[in-house]
């Protein structure tokens, strides 16, 4: 009797593994910018329609040199930060009330659903009537834009706190107030922070709209003026600034999440 032939078992479980390559996004960015630059240099992209990355860099550099860059960023940051904080505090508070109290939810949910989809930019003239053309109307535009998504995310974050943790707290005799601060607030943190990711992006998007009226400094005002003047390189430079600001905020939020949500 001869040995039956041995068939080696081959590996067939390759691929479909989640994971990331740290270098890949950088390489992709570099590649896109290189292609863009060479297309401009070769004259395939007329500078009237799309300036080369080097022209955009020059525009940014010029801004940095004459000191206007910091003025614009400072003015916008002031509006973004104050608007975002106001909208977030109000939004989280209402979201919590709606998550905890049946009456607040029954009243709040339909009202929020009705007002959420209103484009805040359309309300700009109204804000000017209410708040004038100074800082308050700009802050209000951003605050209102931030408020609604924050209400929704805070509400659903509270709603998603496991019921069994609340029942546990009740079974140990914690008061409603203690349950809110010791169980619901920390339990809702992941959802609230996820909501902050969206609301900070909205604040950045709205700064352009907010600075449409009566602003002579700010990144949004700068982008609008560049658009009106057909200074496309400056327009793109402004957009690059906004996107860098967005990346910074997102990095800050990631750090916050790492610290606050260490337990996850």
């Amino acid at each position: 009797m001869s040995d039956p032939a041995k068939t080696p078992v081959s590996f067939r479980g390759a691929g479909f593994v989640p994971g990331t390559r740290r270098w890949a996004p950088w390489l992709a960015f570099a590649l896109i910018i290189a292609c863009w630059e060479s297309a401009s240099r070769l004259g395939w992209l007329p500078s009237l329609f799309m300036p080369a990355p080097s022209e955009v860099m020059n525009a940014l550099h010029a801004l940095l040199v004459d000191g206007k860059l910091l003025v614009h960023i400072g003015a916008s940051l002031k509006r973004i930060v104050s608007g975002w904080i106001l909208g977030s505090i109000a939004g989280v508070t209402l979201g919590f009330l709606m998550g905890i109290f049946v009456l607040a939810r029954s009243v709040g949910l339909p009202v929020v659903s009705a007002l959420f989809p209103i484009p805040k930019i359309a309300l700009l003239p109204l804000f000017i009537l209410w708040f004038g053309i100074g800082e308050p109307s700009k802050v209000a535009t951003i605050a209102l834009g931030v408020f609604f998504p924050t209400v929704v995310s805070a509400f659903s974050a509270v709603d998603n706190v496991p019921r069994n943790l609340i029942r546990m707290a009740q079974s140990f005799g914690l008061s409603t107030r203690m349950i809110v601060f010791k169980v619901i607030l920390p339990g809702a943190m992941p959802g609230i922070l996820a909501g902050f990711r969206i609301s900070t992006s909205i604040a950045l998007i709205l700064v352009v709209a907010a600075e449409m009226i009566g602003a002579d400094t700010g990144i949004g005002a700068f982008v609008l003026a560049a658009g009106n003047l057909m200074q496309i390189d400056q327009l793109i430079a402004g957009v690059v600034l906004l996107s860098l600001l967005g990346l910074t905020v997102s990095a800050l939020l990631s750090v916050t999440e790492k610290i606050v949500l260490r337990w996850r």
């Binding site: 003239p125 000017i128 053309i133 449409m212 009226i213 009566g214 002579d216 005002a221 609008l224």
Partner: peptide
């Protein structure tokens, strides 16, 4: 004060 339009 740039306000974008004549009505504004």
């Amino acid at each position: 004060k740039p306000v974008q339009s004549i009505p504004n």
